[in-house]
Design a protein around this nucleic acid. Sequence first.
DNA 1: CGTATTTGACCAGCGC
DNA 2: GCGCTGGTCAAATACG
Length: 141
Amino acid sequence: MEKLQDLFPISSSSSASPSDVKKEDFLKTQRTLNLKGGKEKQHKYVFQTRSHIDILDDGYRWRKYGEKSVKNNKFPRSYYRCSHRGCNVKKQIQRHSKDEEMVVTSYEGIHNHHVEKSGESFEQILKSFRICTQLHNIMFQ
DNA sequence: CGTATTTGACCAGCGC
DNA sequence: GCGCTGGTCAAATACG
């Protein structure tokens, strides 16, 4: 597979949301993975976050199903999948080897159910909402 | 006891 | 064809 940086060239767009704590640079990329013979097109959406926490709770329940170390990256990449039945949304989280605070998160697929989690901090929910909104906008533009 | 995580095995694609 | 690399499976394990 290609490197993530090659697939999704990081244009350091400084359109950072004027958020409180964390700023997310949204690098929208939808790539049609037409592997051989034009299979189903899937949307892949990548953004990167500057935060200490690599596990961003976006309201969904993610079950980890793998972890691999990739070349040119000293940190392993972890693979998650939505634990809701019938919802095969995938997500992978990867750290940058350069600055440890940089986290690249990739979503793939669309949830077919509503968010089931609540009770987290308000800020978290708000942040998640913002992320999901932009994600939605990008995916269904 | 049910559900999530860990972790090595396994597999598929690609380059040589 | 072989080996490397990345993605997934699944059995064992942890944990509430």
